[in-house]
Design a protein around this nucleic acid. Sequence first.
DNA 1: AATAGAAACGGACCGCAGTCCGTTTTGATC
DNA 2: GATCAAAACGGACTGCGGTCCGTTTCTATT
Lengths: 198, 198
Amino acid sequence: MSLIPLRPDAEPERRDAARNRELLLRAARELIEECGADGLTMGTLAQRAGVGKGTVFRRFGSRAGLMMALLSDAEARFQGRFMFGPPPLGPGAPPLERLIAFGEERIAWVMEFGELARAADVSAYNRFDVPAAVLWHRHLEMLLREAGVTADPWLMATSLSAVLEPERILHAVRVHQISPDRLAASWRELVSRVVRGA
Amino acid sequence: MSLIPLRPDAEPERRDAARNRELLLRAARELIEECGADGLTMGTLAQRAGVGKGTVFRRFGSRAGLMMALLSDAEARFQGRFMFGPPPLGPGAPPLERLIAFGEERIAWVMEFGELARAADVSAYNRFDVPAAVLWHRHLEMLLREAGVTADPWLMATSLSAVLEPERILHAVRVHQISPDRLAASWRELVSRVVRGA
DNA sequence: AATAGAAACGGACCGCAGTCCGTTTTGATC
DNA sequence: GATCAAAACGGACTGCGGTCCGTTTCTATT
């Protein structure tokens, strides 16, 4: 991702390494197409790409890292939109409207990339400290401050982040048949009350 | 002559099964004492209890199932308190106060049993449908309705449940050094605004 | 072109959760 | 007490994520 680079120390990649990364990403997309994200195993991925298993882990660190790499394009696009894009998601609209738009767009994003996002989330404990999550959190916190929420905006942003977690959204939609529209309406309601109470 | 032994009474456990369950629970508590919940493996547990590994899985189904069994006492006590105990957690207090108390007590509960709760949560997808989680959700939904929240109380309860998830609370406390008091204050703020907006 | 050392490679290897299935225990019935 | 089917047992086995380390490939330098 370009806005929050996965490798901030931009040291160039050796040619074989770059070639294998492309091979692996391509193979991973194929396998996910065929078996779903949950059906992808690191072993079959290595086999399909024609590289050793060690290479897969050297490139991506872990299964979750691979999934994040697959997501990074979509993630970067989303980040660009809420940071620099047109209102109401981007700057220019009143903070409450931006908060509402953020949730709506995030829900739509989860509908599209949720399976991958779930697979990327598995890492048990520090998934909240992954760069993208930190950025969303900061964004929410900033909007809350702008909206005049003075009571612990950091923790309030944490709570709002919890509401938008892919796993929960997907569960509501897939198991309880809640429509994305209904989710969005509830988000609007929640965030309005949080802000209006300020 | 009854060839089909009907057993309407729920007394389905054979004596050896009951003995092994106790052996396993005792051994599990010992191991967790020594190595922490994350350090407990099903293999060492079987060894410590002096039973086969298959027996462990027959009893508890999975690692998460074992952790839930270990939690069930504490869980039952908590449930008893918010359903039948004294106010403000139990019935008798105004709904907003009960909501506040529920969050406060839940945060304290996570401080005490959180590691186990996290280990019990790993099961990826339907952890929201575990009986205890369903019960908390219903309780929150009921209190929201009583407090006059008419806008989709079911989803609002879902959002509030998300805020109280053990994993997130533990992360805030352990990684970001947030005090439980500060968490409780933020919960109070959040739930007050949600209800007051009604 | 030769060299050297850093980087990447690959697949055997590890520990773990969870399954399978032949063997043993249990307890209701005779 | 003998019988027997159902239930429980146990440990070898599978498949997975992840690691290790001896081998190969790159590239900067001469």
